[in-house]
Computed example of a mutant assay.
Amino acid sequence: MEYLEFKITCKEAYREILMAEMAGIGFDSFLETEEGFDAYILPGDLDKNEWKELLARYTGPASIQIREGILPKVNWNEAWEKHYDPITVMDKVYVRATFHPSKEAAFAHEIIINPKMSFGTGHHATTYLMLTWQLSLDHQNKKVMDAGSGTGILAIMAKKLGAETVTAFDIDDWSVANGNENFEINGLQNITMQKGNVRTVNKERYYDLVLANINKNVLLDEMATYAQVLDKEGYLVLSGFYESDIADIRKEAEKCGLLYKDKKSNNQWAALLFGKTH
């Protein structure tokens, strides 16, 4: 089946948010390049008005340049093998794909991710920041929510750190299928990625830890629900936004009864830790 192909050159700081926005209007496949990323969508899934509106918001700030074409077929796994290298996180976690050699003996944790075209391989600053936060938080026998799971990498990390239960979900069909595949590859039991958002999925009444690496607008919209399901002694970790957005995120979080604890940042991206104020 033919795909519409969009080769996009843009400022590095805008790559992740552009992919997230494009996924929200029907693009189901992405491949990062040195200059930006390539994006793919079936012709029948492209709403031209939504596409024009998105470009109108970002073309100037992100310095977007686009080359359009048609892609008859693509072997996504082969494409990823050319562009996806293993990474390490704090010398404790080794993130690789199935086609990379294992280094399990040298690291406390090894995560296997066949990313397909879902978000979250550990390469982007926000995923890396979330993983570093997880390594500093107690997961043992805890109930964890991973909102907007993408590849499921944070949910996998939670289980490997000893979480009792993990609720993982995403609004994208491709991510749900990919996440469940990655859960199986990592040998996880009693975890299935659901399709939906924090308001619609089946979930526990309270969580000890809520993880949400999405984008600023979604986080602001869903903040009250994160606060509602967070146990009084629990922690909320948020990322997917820039350091310049911290004030807005904090304001909404505090309005919802959450207490700012600390932050981590990398390449202008931020990840914030909150607790409950009551």
Score class of each variant (00 low, 15 high):
N213V: 08
L31T: 00
I191S: 04
L258S: 02
R199F: 14
Q134R: 00
K203E: 13
L211S: 03
E53M: 09
E16S: 07
L273K: 04
G240L: 04
A147G: 11
I64E: 11
I156W: 13
L31M: 12
Y3Q: 06
L131E: 03
I8C: 03
E2R: 07
W51T: 12
I246A: 13
Y84H: 03
Y58A: 07
S239W: 08
L238R: 02
Y84R: 03
T165R: 08
I17M: 10
K203F: 14
L71R: 12
A212K: 04
N186D: 09
K263V: 14
V166Y: 12
F274R: 07
A224V: 05
Q268A: 07
Q134I: 15
R250E: 13
P61R: 15
E254V: 06
L259E: 14
T88Q: 09
I17R: 06
D221L: 09
H109I: 14
D138K: 07
G234S: 05
T126S: 15
M157F: 08
V74K: 03
Q194E: 14
T33K: 10
E252K: 15
H83P: 02
D221M: 04
H124E: 05
A212I: 04
T33Y: 11
A79F: 03
E68K: 01
I214N: 10
N178Y: 11
I112F: 13
L131Q: 08
V218D: 10
E181N: 09
A147I: 03
K261F: 04
L161Q: 05
F6V: 01
W80S: 02
A97W: 00
V93E: 00
H83V: 15
L236Y: 03
I185Q: 11
L230C: 01
E81K: 07
M22C: 14
N267F: 04
L154W: 12
V237F: 00
A62Q: 14
T9M: 02
E110D: 10
A224W: 00
I246Q: 09
V201I: 15
M223N: 03
K142W: 15
A147Q: 05
G60K: 09
T127I: 07
K251P: 01
L131A: 08
Y128N: 06
A23I: 05
Y242F: 09
G36L: 07
G240P: 01
S244R: 09
S175T: 14
Y207K: 08
L236R: 04
A23M: 10
E254G: 05
A227N: 11
L188G: 08
Q228I: 02
L71E: 12
Y260P: 05
H278G: 12
F241A: 08
A20H: 05
G162N: 05
N267H: 12
I87K: 10
F107P: 01
T151W: 13
A163T: 15
T192R: 08
A163I: 15
T200Y: 09
